[in-house]
């Protein structure tokens, strides 16, 4: 089975700094791939290229084996690639349902000629997707500004699972969450996986990774230094690879 999403030798430079250096990787449908690496290793930059935020300087991104032109985040979204960003990327001045539907607002005809926002529909749908996550948010009319870190994260996650994604990218999805919420997110990842979605997850929590991932990719200074099946490795080995004491590439 071919990768559902794949990068081939992609590179990204910021001025003199090579943030991502010739990285090839791929994810199968129904597989969870974890990307690990120290701060600044280039994890976020790698996934931002897959989600169309940054344009790679070199290399190609393939969707279902076909090279894909990613000019903007719009193209990624249109191709079923959903992303939860590390900084969440929510508009703090807008309310919960507006954020869940941001960029893909549901409209309805008004007076037979204008397309106006269908807030009612969006609120209902938001409520049901949030319920799936079982995360308590008092009112969907509250702006993001008034929410806690965990609630914000829930909104960001709901935002991306609402749209039937083929590929889901999560950049440190559990970072701001309490223990119970972390567990919910991990359960969610497992259930999404059974639906055949390809998932890329970035996390510094070794426990999370070993709990949900099938495969681990270790990045160091922008490079993909190792790929391991979870069933064939140990947290110790991974830590070694991250800090650079083990450099064997299998």
């Amino acid at each position: 089975m071919g990768y559902i999403i794949e990068t081939r030798g992609i590179t990204k430079r910021f001025g003199g700094l090579t943030a991502v250096d010739n990285v090839s990787m791929g994810v199968n449908a129904g597989e969870v791939v974890a990307i690990l690496g120290d701060n600044g290793a280039g994890k976020s930059t790698l996934i931002k290229m897959i989600s169309g935020v940054h344009k790679p300087d070199e290399g190609a991104i393939l969707l279902d084996g076909k090279p894909m032109k990613l000019e903007s985040p719009m193209d990624a979204l249109a191709n079923g690639i959903e992303t939860i960003y590390q900084d969440l990327a929510l508009a703090e001045n807008l309310n919960v349902s507006s954020n869940i539907f941001l960029g893909r607002e549901k409209t309805k005809r008004s007076l037979g000629m204008f397309n106006v926002l269908d807030h009612e529909y969006m609120q209902q749908e938001s409520r049901s997707v949030l319920d799936r996550l079982e995360i308590e948010i008092p009112s969907l009319k509250n702006t993001i500004r008034t929410l806690s870190g965990g609630q914000r994260q829930a909104v960001a996650i709901s935002r991306s699972i609402y749209w039937q994604a083929k590929v889901l990218i999560m950049d440190e999805p559990t970072a701001a969450l309490g223990i119970a919420e972390q567990k919910k997110v991990l359960d969610l990842v497992k259930s999404l996986k059974t639906q055949g979605i390809g998932i890329i997850i970035i996390s510094h929590q070794m426990y999370d990774v070993f709990e949900v991932a099938d495969r681990i990719i270790v990045m160091r200074r922008g490079q993909n230094v190792a790929t391991r099946l979870v069933s064939e490795t140990t947290p110790d080995e991974i830590v070694g690879l991250i800090v650079g004491s083990e450099t064997v590439k299998r």
Partner: peptide
């Protein structure tokens, strides 16, 4: 709605497509 989103968080707006 998009204008408000841009003013609130331009990165979020652009990543939302």
């Amino acid at each position: 709605q998009h204008i408000y989103a841009i003013g609130g968080n331009i990165d979020a707006a652009s990543r939302a497509g």
